[in-house]
Design a protein around this nucleic acid. Structure first.
Lengths: 327, 327
DNA sequence: ACGAACATCACAAACGTTTTCACAATTGAT
DNA sequence: ATCAATTGTGAAAACGTTTGTGATGTTCGT
């Protein structure tokens, strides 16, 4: 059926091993035969069978990517970045969605790990120990999560919160709310810490409102508590939560930013589609995906190099949902 | 390193072939040895090497999925459905994003086709002929596209437009605009046809406004033309376009639905997040993904069965962006 | 009690590569 | 002119499975 290496060998009048070398180790064969082999391979439309190659080399040429929820536009953006970089390196990408389910997460990693050379884990929900166990078996890179001795790429949370809080402080806000994401989310804990630091430095008081799912509905659910807290601004765990807040405020007739300012995190597309548009701290999503693959490919080439930790820049996007405090 | 079939064979005191049969053709081995083999395989944590298996069986256990743009929330939903159904059937999924690029689309299919048993093509932009050529080489299932002799799953466009137009007609609208999507989009052509039929049957006049990219920006760009066309309602090619229209209308101070009603297509999550929320025709996204995999698995089992064409039900979601005509 | 049919299993070949090893031919140094 | 080193190539083994064939022992009908 498909054209194999033997077909090429026969057509070019050489042995199979020469064909292999002509294609993968050009310096080992005579330039003349190399060109001839490559030529016939091209005309015959030969492509090496990756399964056969993988069998002997132990490499699949595939990467795995796990995300907690494709329904959050944040993750498709990351996926795009991963795809782009992976294809450049001639890797294909297995994608799996864990639906925010920790158990499913571990199972999927185990399953994937047999079929890929390495895995990019985006915003994993599992514990540090579980993570470390997996990292011992499989080359792993973490996105939005930091763990000793495992390569990771994370946004600059501290700077992000500094920008957010400075912006609100400059508008006169002195008492703000933070709607927290899932308790198991490392990113949430990190944001809280960064927020406290930034708020402390600026003399802004922070009220924390319960843990919600990192979704639109979570924001809707938290909105009334936020209003009851007597604050003049609120920062959502992420844009979806902030959009939920915005939606509920509008539905209740609370003017944004007239009566309360709303600030998000991520800068997903819908943030710019609503009215008022959402002020948010933009995280480099595609870039994070690309960086993740970069680190993974490095790890595959030099497995015992100390783990790299890459921190990505962030940028506050000032839009319509933040304004001066009510006077 | 990893535990192989020989390890299991040795531990169970049988030959490798017996191990294989105990696991894949249980009726061929004695129940006692079958159980013993399975038991030792389990305790040793044996999992067959898929590359090796693929080499001999010619099957990879992998599926490919191509989508035009992960940035449109419609597609992540489809991806979720595909994933879910594929994992049930013990298949893993290669995902690729073509970025609305026809050339990339063909290249990616060719590349993927070597590594998968079949491909789900979602809203492909290539021509019928190109599609047919590919379908001759690789098991293919089409989503949102119909083509003779190729299995496909499509929403019931005719019914969708009937529901949309009836809704608007009942609100008194007699002259409406349609903002068209990409000219190369089969779905766009199909929607136009269905819209004309529905409008003709209801006595509603339709104004078509240029072809735009199926994105938020496309809707924003078309909004002013729509207003200039002197219509009382507008249907967007999809929700993103409709959200763009909505956004621009709001920015210009045009009241929705007071002065103009807006209707979308798809029912993506952001449609319910904006204010006013977007009336739209919901397409079964996850279900479409699942159905696509269903058809693909059928095709793999019975390659020369006549191609199935599955039509999925749709549902108008009436929300805040449509209302009675201005009086 | 005898051969046919069957059940149960092991052996070996095959899948398409890569890689090790060895061999021949050529080159360079003495 | 001789030997060592180098270059270019082929044969064969290996990767971990599945599957065809055949061997052995058992069951059954007569």
């Amino acid at each position: 059926m498909a054209v194999t290496i033997k077909d090429v060998a026969r057509a070019a009048g050489v042995s199979a091993s020469t064909v292999t070398r002509a294609l993968t180790a050009p310096e080992l064969v005579h330039p003349a035969t190399r060109d001839r082999v490559r030529q016939t391979a091209a005309t015959l439309g030969y492509h090496p069978n990756r399964a056969a190659r993988g069998l002997i080399t132990g490499r699949t040429g595939n990467l795995g990517l796990l995300v907690p929820d494709l329904g959050n536009p944040f993750f498709p953006s990351v996926v795009k970045g991963v795809q782009a970089r992976a294809h450049e390196g001639d890797y294909a990408v297995f994608l799996a969605d864990t639906d925010e389910d920790t158990a499913a997460e571990i199972g999927l990693v185990r399953r994937l790990s047999k079929q890929v050379d390495g895995i990019v884990l985006c915003s994993p929900r599992m514990t540090d120990d579980e993570l470390r166990t997996l990292a011992a078996d499989t080359p792993l890179v973490l996105l939005n999560r930091r763990l000793a001795r495992v390569p990771s790429v994370i946004p600059d949370f501290a700077e992000a919160m500094r920008q957010a809080v400075s912006h609100l402080a400059a508008l006169g806000h002195r008492r703000i709310a933070y709607v927290a994401g899932p308790r198991v989310s490392w990113a949430n804990r990190e944001r809280v810490r960064a927020l406290r630091a930034a708020a402390g430095a600026t003399g802004v008081e922070v009220v924390e409102v319960g843990n919600v799912m990192p979704q639109f509905e979570g924001g809707v659910a938290a909105a009334d508590q936020v209003l009851a807290a007597g604050v003049t601004a609120v920062i959502g765990y992420n844009d979806l939560v902030a959009l939920g807040l915005l939606n509920r405020f509008t539905a209740r007739g609370v003017r944004v930013p007239g009566e309360i300012s709303v600030l998000g995190f991520d800068d997903i597309a819908p943030a710019a589609m609503v009215h008022p548009s959402l002020t948010t701290v933009a995280l480099p999503k595609e870039q994070a995906g690309r960086a993740g693959v970069d680190l993974l490919l490095q790890l595959l080439e030099q497995p015992d190099r100390p783990a790299v930790r890459r921190e990505l820049p962030v940028q506050l996007m000032v839009r319509g949902s933040t304004g001066p405090i009510p006077r």
